[in-house]
Each structure stands twice: as structure tokens, then as C-alpha cells.
């Protein structure tokens, strides 16, 4: 869509856009260029200019079993978390969209967890789902060690995924509700006249019409799961990647490697892989999933 009535000036738009472009240049493009540069070079241990080492940094990452572990953890985190968050949001949106008395109240409440920062939520959940106190303690009293995120990697991973789901369900809910409200009422009425009950209508009319929104949410949520600020924040505040690397997601490993291990080149190579992964991923989703999505 192009505007017809535009102002003619070559320098004014430059002046208007300059502040943001400068910021982006300094804090986005320069760092991205540096990531690429560092990924293919290595700084000698006793100073001097960085040497070009080709793909050595990538080979180092690929030959490290802990790296593959972090890829696995990220994959689980970024599929299980979004799937649950979207499903919960979908069920709640369909329920609220029936507009029974009082549903406005629930709609108001469901978005609230989204206001909470991942680490702050993490701190609270460390208490709520702690093995010794809070809600899980009763369970542990009956069956000792059935839930212990401090000891078992799988439990810790479940804990950080639960926090992710808690925070993002309200977000998916908002988008799906907005999507449902744009479905013409007449469609539901016609289906009801044909004898379809509320459940049938939800599955055969509403969900297919929500396909674009569901698709959009899947892409955003999975990206969020792989590289989102909350993914890092939750893991860092709750488990610090442990126990025994059980919750070490890819972003956590990159930051850890760079600032604790001071291995900038290794961290940059891992950043590049992550960036590539996200791009392939978005591409596959657009290419293959979109074909089966009904627009309009």
C-alpha cells in the first residue's frame, strides 16, 4: 500500500529517521557484524589480532556433547511450552467467547500473568512448587522424592516449562479471543440451525477459522521459547541451567559460555547456529504449514 499524497524532500526523512537508525547501527548492526566476525575468528591467548580459523569454532561446538544437550533441552522447551500455552489459551478463549454472564471478569484476570517478568515468576514458583514446602510438599510427604527439581533434571525442566506456560497462556488467550470475535456470528448460528451443538461448533467451525491466528502464535511462541528474554530469565533465576545441565537451554549456554567461560568465539558460533535455526524454522513453517491454513 503506497501513500499518494507524500511530501517531497530528501533531507527531512533522513533527519526524522536518523536518531533511530543511529541507535540501530550502534546497538544492532555493529553487534551482529561482530557476532559473525567472532564466529569465524579466534583471539590468540597472549594478545594480538584475531586469527581467521574458518569453521573451527563450529566444529568445536558440534563435537561438544553438552552443546547437543542444550539443543535437545531447547527443542523440548520450545515445543512443549508453546503447545500447552496455545492449547490452554484456545480452550479459555472458546469458553470466554460464549459470553456467559461473568465471562468479562475472567477475561480481565487471564491476561494478568503476562505482566510478570519470567525471573519474578520463577522466584515465586520456586516456593509454590518447592519439594519441601508450598503445594508439592504434601505430594512428597506421601510419595517421597516424587517431585524434586533440585535433584532431577527432568523435574527441573518441567518446572521451568510450567512457568513459561503460566506466563504465556494469557498472551495466547488474548490473540485467540480477538480472533474468535472476528468470526461472523452468522456462521455459528447457521451451524446451530443444522443441529451442531456447542462442542461440534467449536471443533468444526471456530478452530478451523482460527487457523491463521494459531499459526501466527505457533511461530511467535516457538521463537520466544528458543530465544525469548523470559526463556533465559526463567532458567537463570530458577535452576541456573542445572541440575547437571538438565535445563541448559541454548540461550543460557551462549551467555554462560561468553561471560563465565569468556569464550566469545565459541559463544558467537553458537549464536550463529541459533540464528540459522530460527530462520530455517520460520521458513519451514511458512512454506509447509501455511498451505493447510484457511484464510478467509
Amino acid at each position: 500500500m503506497e501513500k499518494r499524497a507524500v511530501f517531497k524532500s530528501w533531507w527531512l526523512p533522513v533527519v526524522f529517521a536518523l536518531p533511530q537508525l543511529l541507535l540501530i547501527l550502534f546497538f544492532f548492526y555493529w553487534p551482529v557484524a561482530a557476532v559473525v566476525n567472532w564466529a569465524f575468528t579466534l583471539e590468540p591467548p597472549f594478545g594480538g589480532p584475531a586469527e581467521f580459523v574458518g569453521l573451527a569454532n563450529f566444529q568445536e561446538a558440534f563435537s561438544d556433547p553438552f552443546y547437543w544437550n542444550s539443543v535437545m533441552v531447547s527443542l523440548i522447551f520450545a515445543t512443549v511450552g508453546p503447545l500447552f500455552a496455545i492449547s490452554i489459551g484456545l480452550v479459555l478463549a472458546i469458553a470466554v467467547d460464549r459470553q456467559l454472564p461473568g465471562s468479562g471478569f475472567f477475561r480481565f484476570l487471564y491476561i494478568l500473568p503476562y505482566a510478570i517478568a519470567g525471573p519474578a515468576a520463577g522466584m515465586a514458583f520456586r516456593f509454590i512448587l518447592s519439594p519441601e514446602r508450598g503445594l508439592a510438599a504434601t505430594l512428597n510427604a506421601a510419595w517421597p522424592d516424587i517431585w524434586n527439581p533440585a535433584k532431577y533434571g527432568e523435574h527441573a525442566l518441567a518446572l521451568v516449562i510450567i512457568i513459561f506456560i503460566w506466563k504465556w497462556s494469557g498472551y495466547t488467550f488474548i490473540f485467540l479471543l480477538a480472533g474468535l470475535q472476528s468470526v461472523p456470528r452468522a456462521l455459528g448460528e447457521a451451524a446451530a440451525m443444522d443441529g451442531a451443538g456447542p462442542f461440534r461448533r467449536a471443533i468444526d467451525v471456530q478452530v478451523p477459522l482460527l487457523a491463521p491466528t494459531l499459526f501466527f502464535l505457533l511461530v511467535t511462541m516457538m521463537t520466544e521459547g528458543f530465544v525469548g528474554a523470559d526463556t533465559f530469565g526463567i532458567v537463570h533465576a530458577v535452576t541456573e541451567g542445572g541440575p547437571n545441565h538438565g535445563t541448559e537451554v541454548m540461550v543460557y549456554r551462549i551467555v554462560d559460555e561468553a561471560f563465565k567461560g569468556l569464550n566469545y568465539s565459541g559463544a558467537s558460533a553458537q549464536s550463529i547456529i541459533l540464528i540459522g535455526l530460527i530462520m530455517i524454522f520460520t521458513f519451514i513453517q511458512f512454506r509447509f504449514v501455511e498451505k493447510r491454513v484457511h484464510y478467509k
Binding site: V6, K8, G228
Partner: peptide, 29 residues
């Protein structure tokens, strides 16, 4: 609002920043 050859350059250079969040470029930043 401006008819300028730089407009698309501006648009895309801003748009690309959406792809890479701070977490993956935090070290050089």
C-alpha cells in the same frame, strides 16, 4: 509520508531488527 528512494532502505533496516532479539547478540552488544 515521504516519497524518497531511501524509504525502503529505512523500512528494511528497521524491520530486520525484529528477527534477532538481544539474547543472541548480547556479547558484542
Amino acid at each position: 509520508f515521504f516519497r524518497s528512494p531511501l524509504k525502503h532502505l529505512f523500512f528494511w533496516s528497521v524491520f530486520i531488527t525484529l528477527m534477532l532479539p538481544l539474547e543472541v547478540r548480547v556479547v558484542p552488544t
